[in-house]
Simulated scan of single mutants.
Amino acid sequence: MEELDFFNEYAAALTDSSIQVNRNISTHNIYFKMKRLFDILFSVIGLIITLPVILIFSILIKLETTGPAFFFQERVGLNGRYFKVIKLRSMRIDAEKNGAQWAAKNDPRVTKVGSFIRKTRIDELPQLWNVLIGDMSLVGPRPERPMFTAKFNEEIPGFIKRLTVKPGLTGWAQINGGYEITPKKKLELDLYYINNVNFYLDLKIILKTIITCITGEGAR
């Protein structure tokens, strides 16, 4: 299946009244400006605080397996723009030798160190850089790979409505369903967030994410 040409098809799709997002994003200018300032402040502080953790686990990854400690992967962001997400590598370097695969529970491709950093979300910490440079926000729908976004949008028309806000380091779908929810349920949860964006909801998601990091709930 060919990947969607998001720069064209995305814009056309949102003109389809059957998949309109029921929200008034245009009236939230102050919210989004303040959110961007918060993203910058939080990501700078977060990178300074977590840098030792990132360095320690990058060394552990290198000691356990060959290959780079960091993993760069193309994702789809706001308005269909592609960007490279940064993560600590949690799988073997040949994890996709047979093509792109959706991560599964107890995935055998995950390394020992990888299992721990996925459970605690430490593998996501480098994405604070993505937040700082504006590819992502602290809170928003998790960004998907182009091929999976195209696939899910074919199976679930309107899936690309998730692209009407910046993708996030964490999101409403993550704290309410983790990694095991279906793409359809993920869309429902993400649309709830998009239609109800506010600082209180963002704070609630951040606090719940901290609890998830401590307990490891929802990891795979």
Rank of each mutant, 00 (worst) to 15 (best):
E180P: 01
L187H: 02
R162N: 05
A173L: 00
Y200A: 15
K185R: 13
V197L: 06
I156W: 05
E155T: 12
I210V: 15
Y192M: 10
L187R: 01
N195Y: 01
G168D: 08
P183W: 07
K151L: 15
Y193A: 08
N176Q: 02
I194E: 06
I160S: 10
L203E: 10
A173Y: 00
K161G: 15
K208T: 14
T212R: 10
Q174R: 04
K204F: 12
G158F: 07
Y179P: 00
E154S: 14
T209F: 11
I210T: 12
K166M: 03
Y193Q: 09
L191H: 04
L189A: 05
D190L: 10
K208M: 14
N176M: 05
F159Q: 11
K151N: 13
E180M: 10
E154Y: 13
D202E: 08
P183Y: 04
N153G: 12
L201R: 06
I211Y: 13
K186D: 00
I160N: 11
E180G: 13
K186A: 03
I194Y: 10
D202S: 08
V165H: 02
N195H: 01
E180W: 02
L163H: 00
T212G: 10
Y192C: 10
D202F: 05
K204L: 15
D190W: 03
K204G: 10
L201S: 07
L189S: 03
L189E: 06
I206D: 13
Y179M: 09
K185P: 03
G177Q: 01
K186R: 09
W172P: 00
E188M: 03
P167L: 07
K151T: 13
G158T: 07
L187G: 02
K185Y: 02
Y193S: 07
N196G: 09
E180H: 03
E154H: 14
E154G: 14
E155Q: 15
E180K: 05
L207S: 09
E154M: 14
E188W: 01
P183K: 01
K204Q: 15
V197C: 13
P167T: 03
T170N: 04
T209V: 08
I206Y: 09
L189D: 03
I210R: 07
P157R: 07
L191D: 07
P183Q: 06
I211T: 15
L191W: 05
I211Q: 15
G171V: 09
T170Q: 07
G178N: 03
V197G: 07
G177Y: 00
L169F: 13
G158M: 08
L169A: 01
T170C: 09
G168Q: 04
T182N: 08
T212H: 13
I160D: 08
G178S: 02
P157K: 09
D190A: 07
T209S: 09
Q174M: 05
I210C: 12
F159C: 09
G158D: 11
Q174K: 04
Y200L: 15
Q174L: 05
L207A: 14
T164R: 12
L163W: 03
L201A: 12
G171A: 08
E155H: 04
F199K: 11
I205P: 06
I156H: 10
N198T: 05
G177W: 02
L207Q: 09
V197S: 08
I175K: 06
K161S: 15
G177D: 05
A173N: 02
L187P: 00
D190Y: 03
I211P: 08
V165S: 04
K186N: 08
K208D: 13
N198F: 05
G158N: 10
L203R: 05
K166I: 02
A150S: 15
E155D: 14
K208G: 03
L189T: 06
